[in-house]
């Protein structure tokens, strides 16, 4: 190394030292000690007692753990695509030059600023089967359906019915789609006008332009949002926690991975077990992200390449 290189290395390390400290203390250390605690029986106050792979063995046959994973994936599989489609659709619409465009953008964006706890409280109220606004709007719809088809459909008891609870949560999450809309809007600004003009000459309409020109170009943004959504679904905690008053929802339909770690660690005080759950979650996220990156590299259009 030349003197210059040495100097650069030293200065560079000084500059990144806050991050380095954070990396060691906030990421590396917790992961390593998680691995250790996961091999012990550890409640907050007493010293960890080494139990080998006991926790993992119990985990394999722990239906609640599998259910929390299933719920997390179910929610991810439902909410990520719906939110992506909704966000892209809204972004495309909001990209058209219309009077009042700015106001629209603000209106669609505002809900994504609502703090999670407020969101949970508000949607618990919106989704109340009897007194909530959602069913108030759905019931005339049901009446029409019933009148036409002679059926007797009723609006669901969202948060009291395992078949609908997660759907209710998806509705609530859709309300906060504004964040993604803005990201896509920015992505849309990168689409060269010339491509649209060329497509127009080929006789493409609005939708065909969107599908054949816009989507491929914003595909990196879609990928990024998808990954963030996936990681985000492993953090879903506050909204279902608030909606169920700290519970797990009907038939445990709102028991998510993060909730389960919390319940095991800070409710049942089985911290060793909670660490085992957390580590498995980490491995799953790692594998999924690598997989997504692998797939993405083959299907994503990068302007530079």
């Amino acid at each position: 190394m030349t003197r210059h290189e040495k100097r650069n290395l030293r200065v560079g390390l000084i500059f990144i030292s806050p991050w380095l400290a954070g990396f060691i203390l906030m990421s590396l250390y917790p992961l390593i000690s998680s691995a250790y605690y996961s091999l012990t029986d550890y409640s907050v106050l007493s010293k960890p007692v080494y139990t080998g792979l006991d926790n993992y063995r119990a985990l394999m046959s722990d239906e609640l753990f599998w259910q929390s994973l299933w719920n997390t994936f179910y929610f991810a599989a439902l909410s990520i695509p719906i939110n992506l489609v909704a966000a892209i659709l809204l972004a495309v619409l909001l990209n058209v030059d219309l009077p009042g465009k700015k106001i629209f953008r603000t209106v669609y964006f505002l809900p994504s600023l609502v703090p999670m706890v407020c969101l949970g409280v508000l949607w618990q109220w919106m989704l109340n089967g009897q007194m909530g606004l959602i069913n108030q709007m759905l019931s005339p719809l049901c009446d029409v359906i019933n009148a036409v088809l002679g059926t007797s459909v009723n609006p669901p008891n969202w948060l009291a019915d395992p078949a609908y609870a997660k759907l209710g949560l998806v509705l609530a999450s859709m309300w906060g789609v504004g964040n993604a809309v803005v990201i896509f809007l920015a992505g849309l600004q990168d689409v060269p006008r010339s491509l649209y003009e060329a497509a127009e000459i080929d006789g493409c309409g609005f939708w065909r332009k969107t599908i054949h020109v816009t989507l491929p170009i914003i595909s990196p943004v879609i990928y990024f949002n998808g990954i963030m959504g996936l990681i985000g679904s492993f953090q879903v905690f506050a909204v279902p926690y608030v909606m169920t008053n700290g519970g797990e929802g009907p038939g445990r339909s709102l028991l998510f991975a993060a909730t389960y770690v919390f319940n095991k660690g800070f409710q049942a005080w089985s911290m060793g077990y909670a660490c085992a759950v957390a580590l498995i979650l980490f491995v799953i996220i790692l594998v999924l992200t690598l997989l997504a990156t692998y797939v993405a590299e083959r299907h994503i259009y990068y302007a530079g390449k």
Binding site: P30, S34, I231, A278, L279, L281, I285
Partner: peptide, 11 residues
């Protein structure tokens, strides 16, 4: 990629 719930117990 590390969600907070994964590290919250050791933290």
């Amino acid at each position: 990629m590390i969600p907070f719930p994964v590290v919250m117990v050791p933290l």
